[in-house]
């Protein structure tokens, strides 16, 4: 029996945290509304990677006990629903950005402070 490739769950946690942090830094540093929106998508995907990794970890632990287990299916369906909601969110968000551009002829978020007047 050849050696099984074992990847610690910590690696996936660190990857997901790094992607999430890069998304946060992008949201905080950029002024273009579309780039900020893309960084939000990046954060959503970081969470999705973590959910799939936990699903796989759960499945590996349950598979050692029962060979016919389907543990971990719910997490993958959850990721599927997150993708569905993200797709709906992107359509509405991009429509809002287009409307914004039509009104103030820019997507710079610093021009949005006139919302408070």
């Amino acid at each position: 029996m050849n050696v099984m490739p074992v990847i610690p769950i910590n690696y996936y946690i660190f990857l997901s945290l790094a992607l999430f942090t890069i998304g946060i830094v992008g949201v905080l540093t950029r002024r273009n509304a579309i780039i900020i929106f893309m960084c939000i998508e990046l954060m959503l995907n970081a969470v999705n990677v973590l959910l799939v990794a936990f699903s796989k970890m759960h499945h590996v632990a349950a598979f050692a006990v029962d060979r016919a287990t389907t543990a971990g299916t719910e997490a993958q369906l959850f990721v599927f629903f997150i993708m569905v909601v993200a797709a709906a969110e992107v359509t509405v968000g991009l429509a809002i950005i287009v409307m914004l551009y039509r009104n103030i002829h820019s997507v710079d978020i610093n021009f949005l402070n006139r919302l408070k007047h």
């Binding site: 099984m4 990847i7 610690p8 990794a53 970890m57 499945h59 060979r67 389907t70």
Partner: peptide, 12 residues
């Protein structure tokens, strides 16, 4: 925790 790929699993 860890993630491994054993033979025969992966149907989920």
């Amino acid at each position: 925790g860890f993630i491994s790929s054993m033979r025969g699993e992966g149907s989920i």
